[in-house]
Design a protein around this nucleic acid. Structure first.
Length: 492
RNA sequence: GGUGUCGUGGCCGAGGGGCUUAGGCACUGGUCUGCAAAACCAGUUACAGCGGUUCGAAUCCGCUCGACACCUCCA
């Protein structure tokens, strides 16, 4: 369904700092690039927040009927750890530390990353290119930049000439920085650098003898600069100009700024129409970061194996928690916050399960069309998932009211209502209904049996037995709910 | 120092010049129940401070205070 025809999406563009009507370059098609993880360690929950948000963006674009090519790279060539001085990249360093091959490290953490994505119900991107798989293209792009006169070679390394670029274009267009300010605020150098100016950044670095990851090039045996890969891979798979580029706020400068400079130099056009940046996920009010130890791994949440957590939580609860906040706001993670989300999530899923049993009435006491329009309006407004969730809770209330006999929906409305609920909760938000997974049929059968036995006990006024059944089930995370038309249950 | 984001009720978190009961969690009262739980109904707590613009500001502007991020690899 081409829902995009009646849904005008508005996106907050970091480039213009305002919401803009989204118009794809090619009608009906969307090209989207998101900076992926560096696979030299496990992706932590902060990293995952960004990918999770863009997963929802991807899902919603698909839901609207766009044909989307979603490219999310894997950075496996490593970054320059200390730009000019050391020239050693992180992956190689870690490999030596652990006495294994660099590509083994890359493989291990790539597998871990994919494992996390699977656990958290991510859709696979259309293309997941690796930096090491595009060395040839990167070398070609460097040649092109040199040819245009915006890069220079020194001692086997190649640098992008920021000052030269800034004479014609605006280096700082995305981040709001000015080259003059950068000059005054760049840290003092030791005089070791080959760069003409401290603001210049590496396109190619000559590898020293100890550097394991290296490739031949016209300038030296070495490796590409970090910013280059995204320019190369986005251009290769999405073209010189594409619709959406996403990433974390912290990549805005210098990474995305450099990307623009590189791509613009080669193609002569601005590479990206809509820049989207997700804000940080904090832990205890501080930024999650590998370097400080202030972080939590996605899979630790599923096992409860982290001291900040009182217990384990499901992946769907974590998704729900994330979606309750706007992607452009800082979100603080805590066990308490997750527990609150878990309850809200359970309430939502209980209602979804209840919805299956609800039957249509003769008339409708609720305006399904308006509610549905509100849901779409929320998502159309820069993917406002917190508002969408608020509307979903209106639906929860309605479902419970119907169950109480205080509201009704006619057959047409009920069908539309169900379809819309499922679309937003499962297709768009990507939440999972744990209660209906796995061995649910068998468990359902057993619980139904216990409910029957308890009913008999209650009819015999054997309260001790009926309460024992109820209390022991709750210990197992199965909650019975007595209603007018019998007992239902939910599983946590 | 520069660039940027932001300060909302007990907590999380939307909205964004008059009218949103935002929503979730927590709490209080009621209905239901053998008692509970769940659910439903009702209710409580608010827009950092000081100026300005305006008929009217939590919402716009300025300043102050504070928080966070980026300026070096970082989602």
């Amino acid at each position: 369904m081409e829902r995009y025809k009646e849904n005008q999406l508005n996106i907050y563009n970091s480039l213009s700092k305002q919401k803009e009507a989204f118009k794809p370059i090619t009608n009906g098609y969307v090209g989207m690039y998101v900076c992926g993880p560096t696979v030299y360690s496990n992706a932590h929950l902060g990293n995952v927040r960004t990918f999770m948000f863009f997963d929802v963006v991807y899902r919603y674009l698909l839901h609207l009927g766009y044909k989307v090519r979603y490219v999310r790279n894997i950075t496996d060539a490593g970054h320059l750890e200390n730009d000019a001085e050391q020239g050693e990249d992180k992956i190689a360093k870690k490999a030596r530390l652990e006495q294994i091959e660099p590509m083994e490290v890359v493989q291990m953490y790539t597998v871990d990353f994919h494992n996390v994505l699977k656990n958290y119900n991510f859709l696979s991107p259309s293309i997941e290119p690796t930096a090491t798989g595009h060395i040839v293209e990167q070398i070609e792009m460097i040649k092109e930049i040199i040819k245009k006169g915006f890069a220079y070679e020194v001692n086997g390394s190649v640098y992008f000439d920021v000052h030269e670029y800034n004479k014609k274009e605006n280096y700082g267009i995305l981040s709001g920085r000015k080259v003059e300010d950068l000059i005054h605020n760049t840290r003092a150098l030791d005089g070791q650098s080959d760069k003409r100016n401290p603001q210049d950044f590496a396109l190619w670095k000559k590898a020293d003898d100890r550097h394991i990851m290296r490739w031949p090039s016209p300038w030296s045996d070495g490796f590409p600069g970090w910013h280059l890969e995204c320019s190369v891979m986005s251009t290769k798979y999405l073209g010189e100009q594409f619709d959406i580029h996403g990433g974390g706020m912290d990549l805005k400068f210098p990474h995305h700024e450099c990307e623009i400079a590189q791509s613009q130099t080669c193609s002569g056009v601005k590479p990206v129409n809509y820049w989207m940046h997700t804000n940080m996920l904090s832990l205890n009010g501080q930024r999650m970061a590998k370097s400080t130890g202030n972080y939590i791994l996605p899979n630790e949440i599923l096992t409860g194996d982290n001291k900040v957590l009182p217990k384990a939580f499901s992946a769907s609860v974590v998704r729900f928690f994330n979606m309750q906040a706007n992607y452009r706001s800082i979100l603080d993670f805590s066990g308490d916050a997750l527990e609150a989300s878990e309850k809200g999530h359970a309430k939502l899923m209980d209602a979804v399960n209840l919805l299956k049993k609800i039957e249509a009435g003769k008339t409708s006491t609720f305006d399904v069309q308006k509610w549905k329009a509100d849901c779409y309006a929320a998502m159309n407004d820069d993917f406002n998932t917190p508002i969408l969730i608020a509307h979903l809770f209106e639906a929860v209330k309605l479902i419970n009211q119907i169950k109480e006999g205080k509201a009704t929906l006619n057959a047409d409305d009920l069908l539309e209502f169900k379809t819309t609920i499922h679309a937003f909760i499962f297709d768009v938000l990507g939440l999972m209904n744990e209660a209906t997974q796995d061995n649910s049929e068998k468990i359902n059968g057993v619980v139904e049996l216990l409910i029957k036995l308890r009913k008999e006990a209650r009819e015999n006024k054997d309260w001790a037995l009926s309460d024992q059944i109820r209390d022991e089930l709750i210990e197992l995370g199965i909650q019975l709910k007595d209603g007018k038309e019998g007992t239902t249950f939910s599983i946590n």
